[in-house]
Simulated assay, not measured.
Amino acid sequence: MASSARSLGQTALFLSRRGSAPSFILQSRQFNTTRPNLHVDPPAKKSRRAVRPEDMPMAPEYSPDLLTEQQRSMYDLMSPEDRRQFDAANIRQVQDFNSPQKRRAMFADLDKEVTEINRAFPMRFDGNTTQRLNFWGKDETDDFAKVEDADEEYLDDEMTSMAHAEVELHREVREYARIAAWDMPFLSNLAKPFSLPTEDQILRFRYTTYMGEEHPAQSKVVVELASKDLTPKHLTEDQRQTFLKLVGTRYNPDTDIVRMSCEKHQTAVQNKRSLGDLVNSLIKEAKEGDSFADLPLDLRHHTPKTPLRFPNEWNMTPERRQQLEARRKERQQRDQQGVGIIDGNKILAQLAEVPPPVSPALSKRAEAEREKVAVRAGKFPQKPVVRRMR
């Protein structure tokens, strides 16, 4: 806003003080091939003298007929009251301009405002019209596409994007380190003593957070309640069985816990309110609705798990330690005496001295092989040759 006002003020000041353009006398001579001996100095420029306000011509008297065609059309669309105000304002403006004292005061105020604007927002008008093109506009042939680059000049000494990312990560780590050092110790002032829930607080809500990060599941809320906590204050035993039939697969018979979740709303508060209304509606339906007494409680959705327990015999008792120590000592004595240790070298030596006995079946087969008659190699009976008559 200040730059536009300053520009308008300088334009008005220039137009108000602009005089008639000086006429320069052009030096001319007849055509001649001979080089002149004397140097002709250029004509001296006359200095422009600022036009004083009292030297400016008088403005003509105001009349609607002096308006342009567009201004006249808008003037005709005005109401009579607006026309009278418009005419009075223009007449007063012409009278002030034609008055020398008011005109001098008007231009003095204008010069003062221009000086204050220049002092507050200094600008240089050096007349440099060269454009500083960006990287993509150097080879551009279209003049309208050559846009001056408003960014700072790139000196090729800046860090890369990966380096900036590392610096940003370092800043984040330092921020959390400052929080851990200066802010977290004050959390002890907000600590409250733990108190067990009362009999009326039978609902347990569980929330999910991702440490400040946006996640689709951050609005999910889970509610848990034990069905036996509903009796006898809220429901009777028969009504509790009806309540379990209504919740269906959300009931765990091993732990007697009913678990339900909700994430259909955008915020966790809305999901918590929806779960609370759902529990109230189930309790109301178990009291006032159908009891389903003819239907048994269906527990086929639950697969019971046998808990694995550590055997009591394996527990390390003093008697068990004494028994293990006695076994270790007995094993060490037997190892020192060599009882129960098998020596492979001795066994191989004994087998080498006494040949192992041959089984009777192998002996009979060997005798049968000796009784066979030997046949010279290559003496095989030839087949009879059968000749065919043609």
Rank of each mutant, 00 (worst) to 15 (best):
104 R>E: 14
3 S>F: 12
126 D>E: 10
262 C>S: 07
168 E>A: 05
129 T>Q: 11
4 S>L: 02
157 D>E: 13
354 V>M: 12
308 L>Y: 00
167 V>Q: 13
376 R>Y: 09
324 L>W: 10
94 V>T: 02
204 R>M: 06
7 S>F: 13
207 Y>P: 00
48 R>C: 04
20 S>C: 04
307 P>Y: 05
334 R>L: 12
355 P>N: 00
11 T>H: 05
360 P>G: 02
167 V>L: 12
97 F>G: 00
150 A>K: 09
300 R>W: 10
372 K>L: 11
328 R>D: 11
172 E>Y: 10
166 E>V: 00
351 L>R: 15
157 D>M: 10
61 E>V: 06
262 C>Y: 07
216 P>A: 09
382 Q>M: 10
232 P>Y: 03
251 Y>H: 02
104 R>P: 05
366 A>D: 10
304 P>I: 01
263 E>Q: 14
38 L>I: 08
322 Q>P: 04
304 P>F: 02
271 N>Q: 01
214 E>K: 12
374 A>N: 04
111 D>A: 10
211 M>N: 13
107 F>D: 04
204 R>K: 05
54 E>G: 02
243 F>K: 00
4 S>W: 11
65 D>Y: 15
153 E>V: 01
317 T>E: 15
54 E>R: 02
4 S>I: 06
209 T>E: 09
137 G>K: 05
282 L>H: 09
19 G>V: 06
45 K>A: 13
189 N>D: 13
358 V>A: 10
277 D>E: 12
352 A>C: 02
223 V>Y: 03
46 K>E: 08
26 L>M: 13
82 D>E: 12
118 N>P: 00
306 T>M: 09
19 G>K: 03
291 S>T: 14
40 V>I: 12
195 S>C: 07
146 K>I: 00
367 E>P: 05
323 Q>H: 14
384 P>I: 01
363 S>L: 08
16 S>Y: 11
34 T>Y: 14
211 M>S: 12
176 Y>L: 11
358 V>E: 14
272 K>H: 05
133 L>M: 12
362 L>A: 06
162 M>C: 07
42 P>N: 10
317 T>G: 12
228 K>F: 13
3 S>G: 06
216 P>Y: 10
386 V>E: 11
39 H>E: 09
117 I>M: 14
166 E>A: 01
